[in-house]
C-alpha cells in the first residue's frame, strides 16, 4: 500500500508536466517545430512502432512482422551493436585486466600507457575510426568496444589487486596450485569489481552507440533522430529520445539484476 502510494506520488510530477506541456503547445505558446505537444509525440511514436505493411504469412513469420515497424527495427539494430561492441570490448578487457592485476611487472609496464589513453573519450576517436574503418558497422563497433574496454579494464585490475590476501593464504593451505588459486579464488573474489565495471561499460556503450549511429550507419535509434532533424520532425526526435531513455533503463536494470544474482553471496547486497 505504502509502496503504491509512493509510486503514485512519483508519477505526479511527470504527469503534471505533460499536462502543462500539452496545454502550452495547444495554446500556441511555441511552434510545433520547437516543442510539439506530447499527444503528437505519442501518435508519431505509435505509428513508428507498428508494422507498416499488413501481415503476410507466406513471406515472413509473425514475430518478424511484429518487429518490422521502423522503431522496433532501429531498436534491435542499436541493441545488437551495443551487445556486439560490449562483447568485443569486455572480452578484450577482461583477460588483459586479469593479467595486469596479477602481474606487478606487467602492471608497472603498462599502467602509465593506460592512464594516458583512458581519459580520451571514445567520441574523440570518431575521426580516426572513420579513417581506419570507413563507414558502416565496423567504426561503430570499434567505438562501442572502446567505450566498454576502459571501464571493464580499470575495474578488473582494481578487483584483482584488492583481493584479500587471507583468501590466498587459506587456498594455498588447502593445497591450491596457482591455476586453481586464480580460477577459484582470485577470479570470484574480484568479480564484484569486474561486474561493476561491466555495468559502467554497458552504460558507456549505450551512449557511444547513439553517437556512432549519427555518424557512420543508416539505421538505429541514433541515426533515426538525426534523420528526423533534417525534416524538422521534432515529435519524432523526442519520441526517439524517450525510446533511447527507456531502453537504457532496461539495459541497466537487467544488468543490475544479473549482478544481484551473481553476487548473491556478497555482503554488500544484504537487504
Amino acid at each position: 500500500m505504502a509502496a503504491r502510494l509512493s509510486t503514485l506520488r512519483g508519477a505526479l510530477l511527470p504527469i503534471g508536466l505533460l499536462i502543462v506541456w500539452e496545454l502550452a503547445s495547444r495554446a500556441g505558446l511555441f511552434s510545433a517545430v520547437v516543442l510539439p505537444p506530447p499527444s503528437a509525440v505519442a501518435v508519431r511514436w505509435f505509428n513508428s512502432l507498428v508494422p507498416a505493411l499488413p501481415y503476410d504469412p507466406a513471406s515472413q513469420s509473425y514475430l518478424s512482422w511484429m518487429l518490422s515497424g521502423e522503431l522496433p527495427h532501429d531498436a534491435v539494430a542499436s541493441l545488437g551493436r551495443v551487445l556486439a561492441g560490449f562483447a568485443i570490448g569486455a572480452g578484450l578487457a577482461l583477460p588483459v585486466g586479469l593479467l595486469m592485476g596479477t602481474s606487478d611487472r606487467l602492471y608497472a609496464l603498462t599502467n602509465p600507457l593506460l592512464q594516458i589513453l583512458r581519459p580520451i573519450p571514445p567520441i574523440a576517436y570518431i575521426p580516426l575510426a572513420i579513417v581506419w574503418f570507413g563507414l558502416g558497422n565496423p567504426p561503430a563497433l570499434f567505438l562501442i568496444a572502446l567505450g566498454t574496454f576502459f571501464p571493464v579494464l580499470v575495474n578488473t585490475i582494481a578487483g584483482v589487486r584488492q583481493v584479500d590476501s587471507i583468501y590466498i593464504r587459506a587456498a594455498r593451505n588447502l593445497g591450491a596450485n596457482p591455476w586453481t588459486l586464480f580460477r577459484r579464488v582470485i577470479l570470484p573474489a574480484a568479480s564484484p569489481f569486474v561486474l561493476a565495471g561491466m555495468r559502467i561499460g554497458i552504460g558507456t556503450a549505450f551512449i557511444v552507440v547513439i553517437v556512432a549511429e549519427m555518424i557512420a550507419v543508416s539505421d538505429g535509434l541514433g541515426y533515426r533522430i538525426l534523420e528526423a532533424r533534417e525534416y524538422m520532425w521534432s515529435d519524432k526526435i523526442i519520441g526517439g529520445m524517450l525510446t533511447i531513455g527507456v531502453l537504457g533503463l532496461l539495459i541497466d536494470s537487467a544488468m543490475s539484476r544479473l549482478n544481484d544474482h551473481l553476487l548473491r553471496w556478497h555482503r554488500g547486497l544484504e537487504r
Binding site: 587471507i166 587456498a171 593451505n173 588447502l174 593445497g175 570470484p188
Partner: peptide, 26 residues
C-alpha cells in the same frame, strides 16, 4: 604451505562466494 597442515584463522577466511558445502569441499 600444504594440506597436511590445516590452518584455522581468527578471521575465518571462508570463501564468501562458496556455500558452506563448497567451502568444505574445496
Amino acid at each position: 604451505p600444504g594440506p597436511d597442515r590445516g590452518m584455522v584463522f581468527q578471521e575465518y577466511a571462508l570463501f564468501p562466494w562458496m556455500t558452506v558445502e563448497q567451502n568444505i569441499r574445496f
